[in-house]
């Protein structure tokens, strides 16, 4: 029983890490996207940086972060958040640019301020595309979080590495399966929840 409780706790930690990091990443990415759409010169740069960022292997990034942040959750949070920002940023830039300019003008014409226009017109219209970026980020983050176990980050990744250490032992397969399948299942559950969130938060007027 204790063992099962451990697994559940590991799963909880894994999801908790990913959800918090993705939420943080979404906020960062949105703010960056707003900045990029205001300053067109930054657009190419932002896209290039995110393209290069996505090619960086997570294991290599952890290598950089470890000396800076030490063993433990620090590098895990930083790495997961870093990767999670990139797809959301890309989608948010495209989505914000995709909002019909005449709508923005009419919002301004009605006397809405810049912030109100952003939050009440642009964000709701761009939301489905941004959410698609969040889904991609979440899936990716589940895997990155598993690798973070190598720096003793929290979550199910630890089961995979303990499986690796015990190879030859009967427990190895069990451990590795718990870690791998656990991550897959939780990733699917999270994705389904995000899909549901999308249904609930997307304006009926623009739902496909």
């Amino acid at each position: 029983m204790q063992e099962r409780a451990d697994i559940v706790y590991g799963g909880y930690q894994h999801v908790s890490l990913v959800v918090q990091c993705v939420a943080l990443a979404a906020v960062i990415a949105f703010l960056l996207a707003v900045l990029v759409t205001r300053v067109p010169a930054l657009e190419g740069l932002a896209n290039a940086v995110s393209a290069i960022g996505l090619t960086l292997p997570s294991f290599a990034l952890l290598g950089f972060l470890l000396p800076l942040l030490g063993i433990g959750p620090g590098p895990a949070v930083a790495a997961v958040t870093f990767y999670a920002v990139l797809p959301i940023l890309r989608n948010a830039v495209v989505a914000l640019q995709g909002v019909d300019r005449t709508l923005l003008e009419s919002a301004r014409g009605m006397g809405m301020g810049a912030v109100a226009t952003l939050l009440r017109v642009q964000l709701p219209l761009a939301w489905p595309v941004i959410l698609a970026g969040i889904r991609t980020s979440t899936q990716m983050s589940m895997g990155v979080a598993a690798i973070a176990a190598v720096v003793l980050g929290p979550g199910l990744g630890g089961y995979i590495f303990s499986g690796l250490e015990q190879i030859g032992n009967a427990n190895a397969l069990y451990s590795a399966l718990v870690g791998t399948i656990g991550v897959v299942l939780l990733a699917l559950v999270l994705d389904a929840l995000l899909l549901l969130l999308g249904r609930l938060t997307t304006s009926k007027g623009i739902r496909a």
């Binding site: 895997g143 590795a176 791998t180």
Partner: peptide, 13 residues
């Protein structure tokens, strides 16, 4: 969605 490291370990077993 499966973590790559998990696949590597499972195949190694």
């Amino acid at each position: 969605a499966a973590p790559a490291i998990g696949l590597v370990v499972l195949f190694a077993i």
